[in-house]
Amino acid sequence: MKSFVQFLQTSMKAITDISPFPISVTDETGRIIGDSNPERIGTYHEPSADVLQRDIPQIFEKAAVSTMENVLPGVAVPLYFDNERKGVLGLVGEPDEVLPYARLMKQHVEMVWQDTVRQRIDDLESAILDAFIQYILSAEELDGEKVVQYCDMLEINPTLKRYCIVIDLRDTLLRRMQEHHHMSATAHFRKILLDSVDAVFGKTPEDLSAFLNTEKIILIKAVTSDDIYWKELDLFREKGTQLLKLLAAHDVKKVSMAAGALSDGLDDLARSYHEAERLIEYGRDHGIQPEIYSYQQWDILVSMLPDRLDDGYKQKLSERFAALYRDKQFPDLAASFEEYCHHNLNISKTAAALFIHRNTLIYRLKKIETITQLNLTRFEHCTLLWIALKT
């Protein structure tokens, strides 16, 4: 009942603005809690109890109310909320004129109330979901009982395999807030962005999505098998490209995204999240375009290979190629070799791409072989030098 009173008190102006007649609202005890005439608020309206009990509109003729205390001519109708009679809406005026409006106003007030309750429930569920996601991604060790409680409240199946998709929007929301200065506009924009992510990646009832902060959206996808996970990763770049186009239509231009590893359950989900974060950071640092990353992409794995070698192995390579690094022509030699690898060890295509004579390229490659004792016609030897140059 308290929430009903609060709703009417905060919504009274909007209700009176659309009514062509003065209105009055009483609670289930007959106390007036809202009225076009503020002086009547808090007073008792005795006929309201009868309206609630009989559960039908009551007409109050002018002659009849002349002998009644605090009762005005018009029509009173019961208000229903959550399938229960909670109060009475009265419209003041000639009953014949007021009655058609009374029914419409009753429907309007009840509908607005239901929408308000539904929005509050949605906001509460969203807040609980946000807290749950933050918890499972940041806690050093998950409390099993706490996870079960969250899953029960949010109707989440904790046994499904899941993986994280992280979408980094950078400072998009902060700029939006600075430009518009309205939290309601920002909240609406957040919903547009979240709905865009959900739509592109086909969010299901088992999936979870939320803003982690003002910069990042997380989508936690649920899958029933490893095969489905890999199939979804096959489509990740395609769907990511669709999302970039959709966000660009809303003037969101700088976006990065990545998909993390598959986890067997919620207790291992943080690993997937952190993997996606590392992919975004790595992709940005190395200028990999488009900014849509996953380990399903061979170019990502190849690019990351040199950084995954242990320091001891890197040191060995550095020592082995020290003479090459010291050569005065090293910048030209290294650039020519990398282009040679890029063109699959094809001398003619490499020379054309470098805009140099074929013999010039052969000279440079031969010089590398002389210094390093590598055979640059062998893929394995080229791989070693390529790794060394990338480290």
Rank of each mutant, 00 (worst) to 15 (best):
C151M: 03
L376C: 11
P306Q: 13
D195H: 12
E319H: 13
L233G: 13
L324M: 02
T172H: 02
K146F: 00
F236E: 07
L279W: 02
L305K: 14
L305E: 11
E69F: 10
Q119T: 15
H182I: 02
N344I: 06
M12E: 05
N70C: 04
K239S: 12
V25D: 15
L266K: 06
V223Y: 05
N213T: 01
V197M: 01
I167K: 05
A322K: 08
T370A: 15
G90N: 14
K86Q: 13
L91M: 15
V166P: 08
K366L: 07
K367W: 03
F337Q: 06
V112F: 07
Q329A: 12
L324R: 00
S303R: 14
M153G: 09
R31Q: 12
I156H: 00
E110I: 03
Q134N: 13
A335H: 07
V302G: 15
L309S: 10
K86I: 03
A353M: 02
I371W: 05
T360W: 01
D168W: 01
H108A: 10
K161S: 15
Q315E: 11
E206G: 09
T377N: 15
S336I: 04
D198P: 03
E281D: 10
D227P: 01
L235F: 05
H357P: 05
W386M: 14
A352I: 03
Y44R: 04
R271W: 05
F321Y: 08
E238G: 05
D168L: 00
D268Q: 15
R103G: 07
R170H: 08
Y101V: 10
H181D: 13
G34F: 05
A351I: 00
G202K: 09
Y80S: 10
M12Q: 14
H343Y: 13
S196F: 00
T360M: 06
Q297V: 07
E338W: 02
A322Y: 01
Q373I: 08
M68L: 12
L52V: 03
I15P: 08
Q296Y: 11
I156E: 05
Q53V: 07
A261G: 09
F21T: 13
D251N: 07
Y282H: 10
V302Y: 14
Q297W: 01
F355K: 12
V75D: 09
T224P: 04
V147E: 09
H108P: 05
E155Q: 02
R271A: 14
Y80D: 05
S126M: 06
S263N: 03
H108G: 06
C341L: 06
V71W: 04
H342S: 15
Y163A: 10
E39Q: 11
P78R: 03
K203I: 01
Y325I: 07
L79G: 00
Q9F: 06
N213Q: 04
E125L: 09
F201N: 09
V71C: 10
P57W: 06
